[in-house]
């Protein structure tokens, strides 16, 4: 869980960096997207590794949940879990499944059209009919719909909840956390878990607002 978690967190930072480019420069975003979309190393090494990591992470997560539920056959008549642990730490499966539901939407939005344009239709140019790059245009058009923007915002709030626990938890899982760095890791956890999803939300809202008002 921790290793795939680390990998996914690293991926989030990379993804956010590119998304953020779309706010500042249409041109740069197009260049980088084209590179990521057509570079064989990214497409045929990193992308399969990423897909494997996501599948591994949620399959193992659900298996973990199943085994842990089985480890208590009779539940307490009265239990007070909030007295000793955070909501985030106890509900990783809920925040995780919300993120998974979002990933399905995200795949339908971007990944499936991308794969079909490139590998089914066979158009590797990354250009529209008028000769300009299509990536920025595709991204921008997606965020016309307020429903989609709301779905993105909700998903990223759950991702933040997932990461507030997940970030520090993964350091404990690999044996890195100790009393003397615990507080630091907890603060970094909040910092990472709030800033990164907030960045994604910002990009989505930016494109929505720029449609309507700019």
């Amino acid at each position: 869980m921790a290793l795939s978690g680390f990998f996914l967190m690293f991926f989030l930072v990379q993804h956010l960096t590119i998304n953020t480019l779309s706010v500042f420069s249409e041109e740069m975003f197009n260049e980088v997207s084209h590179f990521m979309g057509t570079n064989p190393l990214v497409q045929f090494l990193l992308q399969p590794v990423l897909i494997f990591a996501v599948v591994f992470h949620f399959v193992m997560g659900m298996f973990l949940e199943y085994r842990n539920n089985k480890a208590r056959d009779v539940s307490y008549a009265y239990n007070k879990p909030a007295a000793n642990s955070s909501w985030m730490s106890r509900n990783m499966i809920i925040s995780g499944l919300t993120v998974l539901a979002f990933l399905v939407l995200h795949f339908i939005d971007f990944w499936i059209p991308e794969i079909s344009t490139k590998y089914v239709v066979g158009d590797m140019t990354g250009k529209l009919a008028d000769g300009s790059f299509r990536y920025y245009h595709e991204l921008h058009e997606k965020f016309v719909s307020p429903a989609r923007v709301v779905a993105y915002v909700v998903a990223f709030v759950f991702l933040a909840l997932h990461l507030i626990h997940g970030f520090q938890s993964s350091f404990q899982s690999v044996g890195f956390r100790k009393s003397n760095n615990k507080l630091l890791l907890s603060r970094l956890s909040y910092l990472f878990a709030i800033l990164v999803p907030a960045g994604f939300i910002f990009v989505a809202v930016f494109h929505y607002v720029s449609h309507n008002h700019l």
């Binding site: 879990p81 642990s85 730490s89 100790k178």
Partner: peptide, 21 residues
């Protein structure tokens, strides 16, 4: 027994204050 997901509840409830360390 189940698998640890680092919720930290044990450390809080342990009568001897055994650390998560």
């Amino acid at each position: 027994f189940g698998n640890c997901t680092n919720t930290g509840a044990c450390e809080v409830e342990c009568p001897k204050g055994i650390s998560l360390d």
